[in-house]
Amino acid sequence: MSVIAHADRIQAPPGAAVRRRKSFLRRRSTVAFFMALPLILIVALLVLYPASYAVYLSTLNKTMERFVGFGNFLFLFKRDSFWMVVEQSVIFAVTAVLFKAVIGLVVAHFVHNLPAKGQRKWRGMLLVPWVIPPAMSTLAWLWLFDPSYSAFNWIFAHFGIDPVPWLGNPYWARFAVILVNVWVGAPFFMIMYLAALKSVPDQLYEAAEIDGANWFQKLWYVTLPMMRNIISITVLFSLIVTFANFDIVRVLTNGGPLDQTQVFATWAFRLGIESNDIPLGASVSLFMFPVLAFAAIFILRDINRRGNEA
């Protein structure tokens, strides 16, 4: 910085300096506030306002002229299709997150075992599913699952296995939706866990080895406790994202067959945008909120705890 150009500022009388410092302090926070203002406006107008507006919308009748209170929710509770969506959303999110975490942890270990200079290219290849826009890669899966030209069934036929109705049968369709979600999400866990594995000090493993620990004991007593934070944060984060997933179900099955793969997001879209019942769609989407709040509280607790440690 140009010291000379501003040297005259230093030679101010002491009284003026105090006054200037006061206004300076005031100015500092004012400037700070104005710098953060665009962010505050965007968050308030485009996130917080719509979120609370959703609550209001959910208390109106279909034509949005009359206040019905909890009417929409009571209506939903009486419908079997609603409970089916609840069941499917929970099965979908829990199973997918579990498999993503396990596969991510396993793959991260395998990459971590490799010599350091070879890791980069493996990591590069393994992250590809996360980079491709999900709507695009799901199209590839849709084609792999095609009822008449499924490339998987072609392989199966060579082993004498009957063709699998990937998207035609409700149970296979549920499996397919979860499989694609795991495929998209596992690389993210892998990258996170790989970063966490690298931060575990080698001395801990050496000490464990001297104590005669086998690989499972090393994993259970050294690796997992050291990675506890990152595991909980990735799982909670992924739970929110998976629970609110839209792209994959929409492109792969569009909720079918017989609405068996419908999750909250796709069902809310069907009701709110396609059937034009905005209040009912808003009510359905609000059911994602409890899961979100639950996960958010735990993530926040974790952040605060780490903030205090630092």
Partner: peptide, 18 residues
């Protein structure tokens, strides 16, 4: 950070109406 956790699937209907 918390706003980041609010999913698009919760916001699109009220935005549409807005």
């Amino acid at each position: 950070f918390l706003t980041y956790l609010i999913p698009d699937t919760l916001l699109f209907i009220p935005m549409f109406k807005t």
